[in-house]
Protein backbone atom coordinates (compact mmCIF):
# COMPACT_ATOMS: atom_id res chain seq x y z
CA UNK A 1 0.00 0.00 0.00
CA UNK A 2 1.39 3.41 -0.95
CA UNK A 3 1.99 5.64 2.06
CA UNK A 4 -0.03 8.83 2.25
CA UNK A 5 3.06 10.90 3.03
CA UNK A 6 6.72 9.93 2.88
CA UNK A 7 9.45 12.36 3.89
CA UNK A 8 13.07 11.38 3.27
CA UNK A 9 15.93 13.50 4.65
CA UNK A 10 13.88 16.63 4.15
CA UNK A 11 15.70 19.89 4.71
CA UNK A 12 14.21 23.36 4.38
CA UNK A 13 16.39 26.44 4.67
CA UNK A 14 14.65 29.76 4.15
CA UNK A 15 16.62 32.29 2.10
CA UNK A 16 18.79 34.38 4.42
CA UNK A 17 18.22 32.11 7.44
CA UNK A 18 21.22 30.92 9.41
CA UNK A 19 19.67 27.62 10.50
CA UNK A 20 17.38 25.20 8.69
CA UNK A 21 13.71 25.32 9.64
CA UNK A 22 13.46 21.60 8.90
CA UNK A 23 16.65 19.61 9.30
CA UNK A 24 16.75 16.10 7.87
CA UNK A 25 13.27 14.83 8.70
CA UNK A 26 12.43 11.28 7.70
CA UNK A 27 9.07 9.67 8.40
CA UNK A 28 6.18 7.95 6.69
CA UNK A 29 2.44 8.21 7.32
CA UNK A 30 0.18 5.37 6.15
CA UNK A 31 -3.22 6.19 4.66
CA UNK A 32 -5.96 6.79 7.19
CA UNK A 33 -3.65 7.57 10.09
CA UNK A 34 -4.05 10.68 12.23
CA UNK A 35 -0.69 12.08 13.26
CA UNK A 36 -0.02 14.82 15.78
CA UNK A 37 2.97 17.02 15.10
CA UNK A 38 4.29 18.44 18.36
CA UNK A 39 7.10 20.81 19.11
CA UNK A 40 7.84 24.15 20.68
CA UNK A 41 7.32 27.37 18.73
CA UNK A 42 9.76 27.59 15.83
CA UNK A 43 10.37 23.84 15.80
CA UNK A 44 9.47 23.59 12.10
CA UNK A 45 5.93 22.17 12.32
CA UNK A 46 4.25 24.79 10.13
CA UNK A 47 7.11 24.67 7.64
CA UNK A 48 6.75 20.91 7.41
CA UNK A 49 3.04 21.23 6.59
CA UNK A 50 3.84 23.79 3.88
CA UNK A 51 6.31 21.33 2.38
CA UNK A 52 3.82 18.46 2.48
CA UNK A 53 1.12 20.51 0.75
CA UNK A 54 3.63 21.66 -1.86
CA UNK A 55 3.18 25.39 -1.22
CA UNK A 56 6.89 25.69 -0.52
CA UNK A 57 9.65 23.57 -2.08
CA UNK A 58 12.12 21.49 -0.05
CA UNK A 59 15.75 22.63 -0.08
CA UNK A 60 16.93 19.02 -0.22
CA UNK A 61 15.50 15.57 0.38
CA UNK A 62 12.17 14.37 -0.90
CA UNK A 63 8.51 14.44 0.01
CA UNK A 64 6.02 12.11 -1.64
CA UNK A 65 2.25 12.44 -1.36
CA UNK A 66 0.61 9.18 -2.33
CA UNK A 67 3.80 8.29 -4.16
CA UNK A 68 4.09 11.57 -6.06
CA UNK A 69 5.96 14.79 -5.48
CA UNK A 70 3.47 17.38 -4.18
CA UNK A 71 2.88 19.04 -7.55
CA UNK A 72 -0.40 20.61 -8.66
CA UNK A 73 -1.95 17.23 -9.59
CA UNK A 74 -0.98 15.63 -6.25
CA UNK A 75 -2.43 18.61 -4.40
CA UNK A 76 -5.90 17.61 -5.60
CA UNK A 77 -5.92 15.11 -2.74
CA UNK A 78 -4.70 17.53 -0.10
CA UNK A 79 -6.55 20.20 1.85
CA UNK A 80 -4.96 22.53 4.36
CA UNK A 81 -6.13 24.68 7.24
CA UNK A 82 -3.28 27.14 7.52
CA UNK A 83 -2.39 28.69 10.84
CA UNK A 84 -2.38 32.21 9.38
CA UNK A 85 -6.05 31.91 8.36
CA UNK A 86 -5.79 33.49 4.92
CA UNK A 87 -8.93 34.75 3.22
CA UNK A 88 -9.92 37.31 0.63
CA UNK A 89 -11.15 39.52 3.44
CA UNK A 90 -13.19 41.93 1.31
CA UNK A 91 -15.13 39.09 -0.29
CA UNK A 92 -18.13 37.51 1.37
CA UNK A 93 -18.18 34.07 2.95
CA UNK A 94 -20.02 32.74 -0.10
CA UNK A 95 -17.53 34.27 -2.53
CA UNK A 96 -14.59 32.82 -0.62
CA UNK A 97 -16.19 29.38 -0.67
CA UNK A 98 -17.10 29.79 -4.32
CA UNK A 99 -13.47 30.55 -5.15
CA UNK A 100 -12.22 27.62 -3.08
CA UNK A 101 -14.70 25.30 -4.79
CA UNK A 102 -13.41 26.41 -8.19
CA UNK A 103 -9.81 25.75 -7.15
CA UNK A 104 -10.79 22.35 -5.78
CA UNK A 105 -12.49 21.30 -8.99
CA UNK A 106 -16.11 21.59 -7.85
CA UNK A 107 -18.73 23.46 -9.90
CA UNK A 108 -20.56 25.88 -7.62
CA UNK A 109 -23.96 24.42 -8.40
CA UNK A 110 -22.72 21.21 -6.84
CA UNK A 111 -20.59 22.75 -4.09
CA UNK A 112 -23.33 25.14 -2.92
CA UNK A 113 -25.42 22.45 -1.25
CA UNK A 114 -22.34 21.04 0.39
CA UNK A 115 -21.23 24.52 1.50
CA UNK A 116 -24.63 25.21 3.07
CA UNK A 117 -24.52 21.87 4.86
CA UNK A 118 -21.04 22.56 6.21
CA UNK A 119 -21.86 26.14 7.21
CA UNK A 120 -24.80 24.79 9.17
CA UNK A 121 -22.66 22.10 10.78
CA UNK A 122 -20.10 24.67 11.90
CA UNK A 123 -22.67 27.20 13.07
CA UNK A 124 -21.99 29.67 10.30
CA UNK A 125 -25.41 29.46 8.64
CA UNK A 126 -26.70 32.92 7.77
CA UNK A 127 -23.22 34.37 7.37
CA UNK A 128 -23.04 33.72 3.61
CA UNK A 129 -23.38 37.36 2.62
CA UNK A 130 -21.06 38.76 5.27
CA UNK A 131 -17.62 39.97 4.19
CA UNK A 132 -15.04 37.73 5.86
CA UNK A 133 -13.37 40.70 7.56
CA UNK A 134 -16.50 41.10 9.70
CA UNK A 135 -16.24 37.55 11.12
CA UNK A 136 -14.68 36.84 14.51
CA UNK A 137 -11.43 34.89 14.77
CA UNK A 138 -13.31 31.75 15.80
CA UNK A 139 -15.77 32.08 12.93
CA UNK A 140 -12.93 32.49 10.47
CA UNK A 141 -11.21 29.40 11.82
CA UNK A 142 -14.41 27.38 11.41
CA UNK A 143 -14.85 28.82 7.93
CA UNK A 144 -11.35 27.60 7.13
CA UNK A 145 -12.37 24.08 8.07
CA UNK A 146 -15.52 24.42 5.95
CA UNK A 147 -13.38 25.57 3.03
CA UNK A 148 -11.00 22.65 3.45
CA UNK A 149 -13.85 20.14 3.52
CA UNK A 150 -15.80 21.37 0.48
CA UNK A 151 -14.29 18.41 -1.31
CA UNK A 152 -13.32 15.69 1.15
CA UNK A 153 -9.55 15.34 0.76
CA UNK A 154 -7.50 12.19 1.16
CA UNK A 155 -5.00 14.12 3.27
CA UNK A 156 -6.01 16.90 5.62
CA UNK A 157 -3.30 19.13 7.07
CA UNK A 158 -4.40 21.09 10.10
CA UNK A 159 -2.11 23.78 11.47
CA UNK A 160 -3.47 24.85 14.84
CA UNK A 161 -7.09 24.30 13.79
CA UNK A 162 -8.40 25.06 17.27
CA UNK A 163 -6.61 28.37 17.75
CA UNK A 164 -9.24 30.97 18.52
CA UNK A 165 -12.01 28.40 19.02
CA UNK A 166 -13.95 28.00 22.24
CA UNK A 167 -14.50 24.54 23.74
CA UNK A 168 -17.77 23.97 21.89
CA UNK A 169 -16.18 25.07 18.63
CA UNK A 170 -13.30 22.64 19.14
CA UNK A 171 -15.69 19.85 19.97
CA UNK A 172 -17.78 20.43 16.87
CA UNK A 173 -14.75 20.53 14.61
CA UNK A 174 -13.49 17.22 15.95
CA UNK A 175 -16.90 15.54 15.90
CA UNK A 176 -17.07 16.40 12.21
CA UNK A 177 -13.51 15.37 11.44
CA UNK A 178 -13.81 12.08 13.26
CA UNK A 179 -17.06 11.42 11.45
CA UNK A 180 -15.25 11.98 8.16
CA UNK A 181 -12.47 9.66 9.26
CA UNK A 182 -15.00 6.94 9.90
CA UNK A 183 -16.55 7.43 6.45
CA UNK A 184 -13.35 7.84 4.44
CA UNK A 185 -9.73 6.80 4.66
CA UNK A 186 -8.76 10.31 5.66
CA UNK A 187 -5.16 10.95 6.67
CA UNK A 188 -4.73 13.80 9.10
CA UNK A 189 -1.56 15.60 10.10
CA UNK A 190 -2.24 17.99 12.93
CA UNK A 191 -0.28 20.58 14.83
CA UNK A 192 -1.83 21.90 18.00
CA UNK A 193 -0.86 23.51 21.23
CA UNK A 194 -3.82 21.71 22.83
CA UNK A 195 -2.12 18.46 23.70
CA UNK A 196 -5.34 16.91 24.96
CA UNK A 197 -6.70 17.46 21.45
CA UNK A 198 -3.70 15.65 19.96
CA UNK A 199 -3.98 12.82 22.48
CA UNK A 200 -7.69 12.30 21.85
CA UNK A 201 -7.65 12.50 18.08
CA UNK A 202 -4.39 11.00 16.86
CA UNK A 203 -2.85 7.57 16.94
CA UNK A 204 0.69 8.73 16.54
CA UNK A 205 2.80 11.65 17.62
CA UNK A 206 5.89 13.09 15.94
CA UNK A 207 7.85 15.43 18.18
CA UNK A 208 10.09 17.90 16.41
CA UNK A 209 12.57 20.31 17.88
CA UNK A 210 14.86 22.66 15.97
CA UNK A 211 13.63 21.07 12.75
CA UNK A 212 14.62 17.55 13.82
CA UNK A 213 12.47 14.58 14.67
CA UNK A 214 13.19 13.69 18.29
CA UNK A 215 10.38 11.17 18.95
CA UNK A 216 7.99 9.08 16.89
CA UNK A 217 5.44 6.96 18.71
CA UNK A 218 1.95 6.69 20.07
CA UNK A 219 0.73 9.23 22.63
CA UNK A 220 0.90 6.41 25.20
CA UNK A 221 4.56 5.74 24.33
CA UNK A 222 5.36 9.36 24.88
CA UNK A 223 3.50 9.46 28.19
CA UNK A 224 5.31 6.36 29.40
CA UNK A 225 8.61 7.82 28.39
CA UNK A 226 7.81 10.85 30.46
CA UNK A 227 7.64 8.43 33.40
CA UNK A 228 5.46 8.60 36.45
CA UNK A 229 4.72 12.22 37.01
CA UNK A 230 3.64 11.86 40.61
CA UNK A 231 2.86 9.53 43.46
CA UNK A 232 -0.01 10.34 45.78
CA UNK A 233 0.32 9.08 49.36
CA UNK A 234 -2.52 9.10 51.82
CA UNK A 235 -1.80 8.72 55.48
CA UNK A 236 -4.48 8.39 58.13
CA UNK A 237 -2.31 10.12 60.68
CA UNK A 238 -1.15 13.70 60.25
CA UNK A 239 1.73 12.84 62.64
CA UNK A 240 3.35 10.86 59.82
CA UNK A 241 3.46 13.69 57.35
CA UNK A 242 6.76 15.29 58.47
CA UNK A 243 8.44 11.87 58.30
CA UNK A 244 7.12 11.31 54.76
CA UNK A 245 8.34 14.72 53.61
CA UNK A 246 11.77 14.27 55.23
CA UNK A 247 12.20 10.78 53.78
CA UNK A 248 11.21 11.98 50.31
CA UNK A 249 13.65 14.87 50.42
CA UNK A 250 16.47 12.54 51.50
CA UNK A 251 15.79 10.44 48.35
CA UNK A 252 15.80 13.48 46.10
CA UNK A 253 12.03 13.72 45.69
CA UNK A 254 9.86 16.78 46.14
CA UNK A 255 6.89 16.50 48.51
CA UNK A 256 3.88 18.77 48.62
CA UNK A 257 0.80 18.55 50.81
CA UNK A 258 -2.50 18.80 49.03
CA UNK A 259 -5.52 18.37 51.34
CA UNK A 260 -5.16 15.01 53.04
CA UNK A 261 -2.66 13.81 50.46
CA UNK A 262 1.06 14.15 49.95
CA UNK A 263 2.11 14.44 46.32
CA UNK A 264 5.63 13.25 45.49
CA UNK A 265 7.39 14.20 42.29
CA UNK A 266 10.93 13.85 41.04
CA UNK A 267 13.32 11.77 38.98
CA UNK A 268 13.20 7.93 39.04
CA UNK A 269 10.08 8.08 41.17
CA UNK A 270 9.17 4.46 40.40
CA UNK A 271 12.56 3.21 41.67
CA UNK A 272 12.80 5.47 44.70
CA UNK A 273 9.26 5.07 45.98
CA UNK A 274 9.67 1.48 47.34
CA UNK A 275 12.73 2.61 49.35
CA UNK A 276 10.74 5.44 50.83
CA UNK A 277 7.84 3.14 51.70
CA UNK A 278 10.25 0.67 53.32
CA UNK A 279 11.78 3.44 55.43
CA UNK A 280 8.34 4.66 56.47
CA UNK A 281 7.34 1.10 57.43
CA UNK A 282 10.49 0.82 59.59
CA UNK A 283 9.56 4.08 61.29
CA UNK A 284 5.99 2.76 61.73
CA UNK A 285 4.57 5.72 59.81
CA UNK A 286 1.11 4.67 58.62
CA UNK A 287 0.51 4.92 54.85
CA UNK A 288 -3.05 4.06 53.84
CA UNK A 289 -2.66 4.15 50.07
CA UNK A 290 -0.18 4.90 47.33
CA UNK A 291 -1.20 5.86 43.85
CA UNK A 292 1.17 6.30 40.92
CA UNK A 293 -0.16 8.72 38.33
CA UNK A 294 1.15 8.50 34.78
CA UNK A 295 2.39 11.70 33.18
CA UNK A 296 -0.05 13.45 30.90
CA UNK A 297 1.03 13.97 27.32
CA UNK A 298 1.57 17.59 28.20
CA UNK A 299 3.92 16.74 31.05
CA UNK A 300 5.75 14.17 28.97
CA UNK A 301 6.10 16.64 26.11
CA UNK A 302 7.36 19.34 28.46
CA UNK A 303 9.92 16.94 29.95
CA UNK A 304 11.02 15.84 26.49
CA UNK A 305 11.52 19.32 25.13
CA UNK A 306 13.29 20.38 28.36
CA UNK A 307 15.72 17.52 28.05
CA UNK A 308 16.21 18.35 24.36
CA UNK A 309 17.09 21.93 25.21
CA UNK A 310 19.48 20.77 27.96
CA UNK A 311 21.19 18.28 25.67
CA UNK A 312 21.81 20.96 23.06
Amino acid sequence: MTAAVVATDVVKVYPGATAPAVDGLTFSVPPGQAVGLLGPNGAGKTTLLKLVCGASPVSSGRILVHGRSPDAAARRDVAVVHQSGPFDLMLTVRDNLRTAAAFRGLPWRRARTRAEELLGAFELAGSEDRPVHTLSAGQRRRLQVVRALLRVPRILLLDEPSAGLDMEGRRRVWVSLNQLRRQHELTIILTSHYLDEVERNTERVLVVSHGRLIRDGTPADLRNEGGEARAVLRSGSVDGWPAIATGALRLGLAAARSGDEIVLTGPELRQRLPRLLAELAEQRVPVDSVELATASLEEAFAALTRSEVTSR
Binding site: G54, S56, A72, R75, P86, D88, R104
Partner: peptide
Protein backbone atom coordinates in the same frame (compact mmCIF):
# COMPACT_ATOMS: atom_id res chain seq x y z
CA UNK B 1 -2.17 38.95 3.58
CA UNK B 2 -1.17 35.31 3.24
CA UNK B 3 -3.56 34.41 0.42
CA UNK B 4 -0.56 33.40 -1.68
CA UNK B 5 0.02 30.52 0.75
CA UNK B 6 -3.60 29.41 0.45
CA UNK B 7 -3.53 29.64 -3.35
CA UNK B 8 -0.33 27.64 -3.67
CA UNK B 9 -1.87 24.93 -1.52
CA UNK B 10 -4.49 24.41 -4.24
CA UNK B 11 -3.90 22.31 -7.34
CA UNK B 12 -2.72 25.32 -9.29
CA UNK B 13 0.29 25.66 -11.56
Amino acid sequence: NGMALELWSYPLT
